[in-house]
Design a binder for these strands. Structure first.
Length: 479
RNA sequence: CGGGGUGUGGCUCAGUUUGGUAGAGCGCUUGGUUCGGGACCAAGAGGUCGGGUGUUCGAGUCACCUCACUCCGACCA
């Protein structure tokens, strides 16, 4: 068996057409189907199970940190959306409107939420009266609508699932801490659970969220060298509080505006997982979010004892809280191998007459396609170790890809030369002027991605104008 | 929103140049043989050709309109 051979003919190879490869995986791994409305996708059970696993990990973490889940309406009256000027200007081009109720024209049109800052603010204005009411740490899981012009499954759909945290704090310091705390939650989730290395950073002023004082984000590098903003966390200061007249009485009996944050991540993360870990045989899922962590494929299952051994093995693993399944369908073993590789199941166990006789089974790892025979004694510990190994191996591979595609540059020419070898992260110094930011993008195609929290000084001069540099910036072509 | 590509059984596509009885492979159903990398044989079911309007004796095929998907740009989670 040649391990480097492409075993699934149905998927367009990455090297031939990365975009096509991506959509092939979305469809062939049964993650999504298209619906009859442009940009609105059907998330199928296998895709949704991935989302549920992501949700569960994050939701648990949010609650540990004191956040409470709520649900806000999906409609925002136009006047409410318009209360914060920058915010409405940022979102107006992509909101969907409801203008009719039944057969009657509404007196005020309703926006289908693109994000819920305004709704939270309206509510907070009603319930925050005293410093004793702070902080307010709310989160909601819902879908939002943004009328995108071009759409792609998970990466850019008109309706997408997400989580939005909205918090209110007595002081700016507290709110700033919260902003970074949640950014870190996202970063850890990506690195630990999704095995995706990320850069934590701050957006440049031109790239900030509409209405935010500071926008932070985590940026990941995909297999093709393009960047993906994987999650964001915003510090709002008291701008919205002022616009929505949210005031509380302090201990000293004075009136003050609270300071606000919001932070979110979306089903786009599934796209990030696909484009970070996937290969020409299909999806490769990190164990933490894989709906099936271990697939057991019985070989010659009609022979006596084979299925029983498979079920027994399943039960042992199940009792150790491993998400495991036996595929006892009538398909051939080869078909099953290919099928679960396409679906990215991290670990496959083959068990047939030869194994049973030897007290063994075959364990195949999805991320590197390695196959080994292991003893059935102590199988739980073996498989647990394999799942850890899968996460670590995937992370290492992704990090190597990022490092291979990260270039330090001090001039525009160097950027262009670096990018001629393939897309990736460009690290270069910046003076802080928007004109330079625009010029870099115009001349190289690489936009500013973020100002990393961990700063280094790779030169004293701006990569564009040559004036004294303020900060190191990551640049790249983005999804 | 600009530029390309594609819409024909569930899926992938041929047929469109030159208008004349709707095709293939895969999948599906049934029966049998198989089973350590997408098995094989036999029989069977399944399509108003994305939608609309027009031209024509006759349209999957020609014209116009429209919708969707997809790729490449600009904008965005």
């Amino acid at each position: 068996m040649a391990q480097d051979k492409k075993m699934v003919e149905a998927i367009t190879p990455m090297s031939v057409d990365f975009a096509q490869w991506y959509t092939d995986i979305c469809k062939k791994a049964d993650l999504i189907d298209y619906s009859s409305v442009k940009g609105c996708m059907i998330i199928r059970p296998y895709g949704y199970a991935i989302w549920e696993n992501m949700q569960h990990i994050l939701d648990t973490k949010f609650k540990e940190l004191g956040h409470e889940n709520v649900y806000m309406p999906m409609f925002i009256p136009e006047t409410l959306l318009e209360k914060e000027k920058d915010h409405v200007e940022g979102f107006a081009p992509e909101v969907a409107w409801v203008t009719m109720g039944g057969n009657e024209k509404l007196t005020e049109r309703l926006c289908v939420r693109p994000t819920s800052e305004t709704l939270f603010c309206e509510h907070y204005a009603n319930i925050i009266k005293s410093y004793r009411d702070l902080p307010k740490l709310y989160n909601q899981w819902c879908s939002v609508v943004r009328w995108e012009k071009t759409t792609r499954p998970f990466l850019r759909s008109r309706e997408f699932l997400w989580q939005e945290g909205h918090t209110m704090h007595a002081t700016a310091e507290e709110a700033r801490e919260e902003t970074l705390r949640m950014l870190n939650v996202y970063a850890k989730f990506h690195e630990q659970d999704l095995a995706i290395p990320v850069i934590e950073g701050c957006k440049t002023p031109s790239d900030k969220f509409a209405g935010a004082e500071d926008t932070y984000a985590i940026e990941a590098l995909m297999h093709d060298g393009k960047c993906l903003q994987a999650a964001t966390s915003h510090y709002f200061g008291d701008g919205f509080a002022k616009a929505f007249d949210i005031k509380y009485t302090t201990k000293e009996n004075t009136l003050a505006y609270p300071h606000q944050t919001s932070w979110g991540c979306t089903t786009r993360m599934i796209g990030g997982v696909i484009m970070t870990h996937g290969d020409d045989n299909g999806l490769v899922l990190p164990p933490a979010i894989a709906p099936i962590q271990v697939i057991i494929v019985p070989v010659a299952q009609h022979k006596e004892g084979v299925l029983d051994a498979a079920y027994k093995l399943r039960d042992v693993l199940l009792s150790a809280d491993i998400r495991v399944k036996v595929d006892d369908s009538e398909q051939s073993p080869g078909w099953k191998f290919a099928e679960y590789e396409m679906k990215g199941v991290p670990v496959r166990i083959e068990i047939g007459p030869r194994d049973i006789e030897a007290g063994q089974c075959v364990v195949a790892m999805r991320y590197n396609m390695e196959k080994t025979s292991v003893s059935l004694d102590g199988i739980v510990d073996t498989i647990k170790a394999k799942l850890v190994e899968a996460r670590d191996g995937m992370y290492k591979k992704a990090l190597e890809n990022r490092e291979r595609r990260t270039y330090d540059c001090t001039t525009i020419d160097e950027i262009n030369e670096a990018l001629s070898k393939g897309d990736g992260f460009i690290r270069a110094m910046w003076c802080g002027e928007e004109t330079c930011e625009d010029e870099v993008k115009a001349k190289t195609g690489a936009g500013s991605r973020c100002i990393p929290l961990v700063q280094e000084r790779i030169s004293d001069r701006c990569v564009c104008c040559g004036k004294p540099a303020k900060s190191l910036v990551y640049w790249g072509k983005a999804y």
